[in-house]
């Protein structure tokens, strides 16, 4: 296949990914809208492993009494993709008729289909990146368009990867929305025809530095989405999982992403040392990477500071996420510096 054909193929796969993400988003949204409501605070109880050969009792929070029959507390017929969460049905909630049960089952099935579509979308997204790379014969994240396409992939991959081990399907609709909007933005605003990059970008460091930045940005997007949901969701009943769970998802994503981001910034400094003759020069992009890093460090400190956990920490996290987004998009468009590789006119 010629380079032009590969480049065209890549563009088609981006469009396919957008469509798949949009349909998946609708599916996830239906599941969310007709699925089960959950209480705000009570659901701190941990997941109970049923298939273990030994009894593993899980007591909530500081409770000292192990409630051993919690093992069977979850609905016994829970579908495999929906792990039993102890205490899901609030005490005293009126039992609904069988009709609602059926709606709920359909909703869950819709969600499962959406999950499959999300996987397909991710594969299309990945294929778009790979074919682009083959077309231009270099690492395919040399300009803003390619970079945004890759971050959307990373965010979806972070979501689906987390989903393998922990049920975070409630995030689906929002991650799909973010990814579809991101790809749309890439195609409509940032599109750059396949081609070579300037010599400064022609380095193996792009593989190291930019990949780390992309992966951590993907994870941090996941955390950001959870953070927004945390604020949107009150403490009452909601179709969204409890605030504690949302916070946990966000925290875990950040805990993974922070060292990676640290590494990305340092790899960037190493590259700058090769290309520009200094490892740190307070170029706008460097300034905002630093701000983002400090803001996430502030989040980690807020998590262990009395009076800052929960809502305040989430707000810090979202401010940090705002800094990240501004760094990825705003700095390239509004401020020019050495890093102005965006190729956006």
């Amino acid at each position: 296949m010629s380079a032009e054909q590969l480049a065209e193929l890549s563009d088609l796969f981006v469009v396919a990914a957008v469509l798949l993400y949009v349909v998946a988003m609708v599916g996830f949204a239906i599941e969310l809208a007709f699925g089960r409501s959950r209480p705000g605070r009570a659901a701190t109880a941990r997941r109970v492993e049923i298939k273990q050969p030994v009894a593993v009792g899980a007591a909530a929070g500081g409770d000292t009494v192990a409630v051993s029959d919690e093992v069977s507390a979850g609905p016994a017929d829970a579908s495999p993709e929906e792990p039993a969460v102890a205490g899901e049905t609030p005490p005293g909630a009126p039992e609904r008729a069988g009709q609602d049960d059926r709606t709920m089952r359909v909703a869950v099935r819709t969600g499962t289909v959406a999950l499959g579509l999300a996987w397909l979308g991710m594969i299309a997204n990945l294929t778009a990146i790979a074919t682009r790379g083959l077309a231009v014969e270099r690492w395919p994240w040399g300009n803003m368009y390619e970079f945004v396409v890759a971050i959307c992939f990373a965010a979806v991959a972070a979501f689906l990867g987390t989903q393998i081990r922990t049920n975070v399907r409630f995030l689906g609709a929002f991650v799909m929305l973010a990814a579809a909007l991101g790809l749309g933005l890439a195609v409509k605003v940032f599109y750059t025809a396949a081609g070579p990059v300037v010599p400064a970008l022609d380095s193996y460091w792009i593989a190291i530095h930019v990949s780390a930045a992309i992966i951590s940005s993907g994870l941090l997007t996941l955390a950001g989405v959870s953070g927004v949901l945390y604020l949107v969701r009150g403490d009452g009943m909601s179709r969204l999982p409890s605030r504690a769970e949302l916070e946990k998802v966000a925290h875990r994503a950040i805990v993974f992403a922070f060292p990676l981001w640290t590494f990305a910034v340092i790899a960037g400094a190493l590259w700058a040392d090769r290309a520009w003759g200094r490892y740190w020069g307070w170029d706008p992009k460097e300034v905002w990477s630093f701000i983002t890093w400090v803001a996430y460090a502030a989040y980690l400190h807020a998590k262990v500071t009395a009076g800052w956990r929960g809502r305040a920490a989430t707000i810090v996290q979202l401010v940090a996420f705002g800094c990240l987004l501004f760094n990825l998009i705003g700095v390239n468009i509004f401020i020019d510096g050495l890093h102005s590789y965006a190729d956006v006119d």
């Binding site: 701000i291 400090v294 803001a295 400190h301 800052w308 800094c323 700095v331 401020i335």
Partner: peptide, 15 residues
């Protein structure tokens, strides 16, 4: 925590 914030905030005019 507050000093970290100030550090981040103080960097903004630098860009």
């Amino acid at each position: 925590l507050i000093l970290l914030f100030l550090l981040a905030l103080g960097s903004v005019p630098g860009s």
